[in-house]
């Protein structure tokens, strides 16, 4: 792993964002819409008699955390797609750049992008609804770390799928993370799932993060068990995602697909 090669690739994408309003807005535009939509919906729901106490905290906290997962995944998938769209992939992989360095660069980019997104969404939630995201407290650090790692795992799998099946699979870059959303207990507890689905949901790392978040907001203390489960599951997910990526990369090299991935 050579740092200068990772940083070179990071710089390539920062040039892109510096110059492209559309790409720059993508970091802010959708999070802004999400905050507005869910924020107003939450305020409306709170007016009903018997509304869930702390609904604003639950929903906006969940929304911000989900966005962290999603942007983390997008940071990897879209950085890869940028290379496909610009027919630059072959230039990169005939250089000494390794697949691992490529992934490392996309991870750094995802951190930069989600950092910007998080600042905007957290500030908006505070400005518009008086919601202080940092009230979640110390548990926020491992929550966020777990969601970032899950986003990376999904991003790595997405990248592998596009490498293997070409641009016709690029919809995965936007869709795969949402496959996890219904089973991640983002906006509702795991207990609402029917038997079977409920047990399966506990094997999604994000479920533990969102359950933990609700537990903290409800005053339930530091959710050590949830975080331990999330961390353990994430380690397994990341290892499987990397194994899948490297295995796909081997197949791509065997079949000469790198030359055709942009077609």
């Amino acid at each position: 792993m050579k740092l200068h090669r990772v940083l070179a690739l990071v710089l390539r994408h920062l040039y892109l964002y510096k110059r492209s309003l559309a790409r720059f807005m993508e970091v802010f535009y959708f999070p802004l819409l999400d905050i507005l939509l869910w924020g107003f919906l939450t305020i409306y729901l709170q007016r009903f008699p018997g509304a869930v106490p702390g609904a604003v905290s639950f929903l906006l906290g969940a929304l911000i955390l989900w966005d962290i997962l999603y942007r983390s995944q997008q940071g990897i998938s879209l950085s890869f797609l940028e290379e496909v769209w610009s027919r630059n992939l072959l230039n990169l992989f005939v250089s000494p750049l390794t697949a691992g360095e490529f992934l490392a660069a996309t991870m750094v980019l995802s951190l930069i992008k989600l950092g910007l997104t998080a600042v905007v969404t957290i500030a908006l939630a505070w400005a518009l609804y008086g919601y202080n995201f940092f009230l979640i407290g110390l548990a926020l650090v491992p929550f966020v770390a777990n969601l970032i790692v899950l986003g990376w795992s999904i991003g790595i799998v997405t990248t592998a799928i596009i490498l293997r099946f070409g641009q016709k699979a690029e919809v995965m870059a936007w869709g795969l993370a949402f496959l996890f959303q219904p089973f991640s207990a983002v906006f509702y507890p795991v207990s609402v799932f029917p038997p079977g689905v409920r047990e399966a949901a506990w094997f999604v790392p994000a479920s533990h993060v969102f359950e933990g978040m609700r537990s903290v907001i409800a005053g339930g203390g530091f959710p050590l068990a949830h975080l331990a489960w999330a961390g353990g599951l994430n380690a397994v997910y990341l290892m499987l995602a990397l194994a899948w990526f490297y295995s796909t990369f081997r197949v791509v090299r065997e079949r000469g697909l790198l030359l055709r991935v942009g077609e």
Partner: peptide, 11 residues
């Protein structure tokens, strides 16, 4: 180098 590859357009 190849005629069939390119370089990022926005740079």
């Amino acid at each position: 180098s190849s005629t069939y590859v390119s370089l990022p357009y926005s740079l």
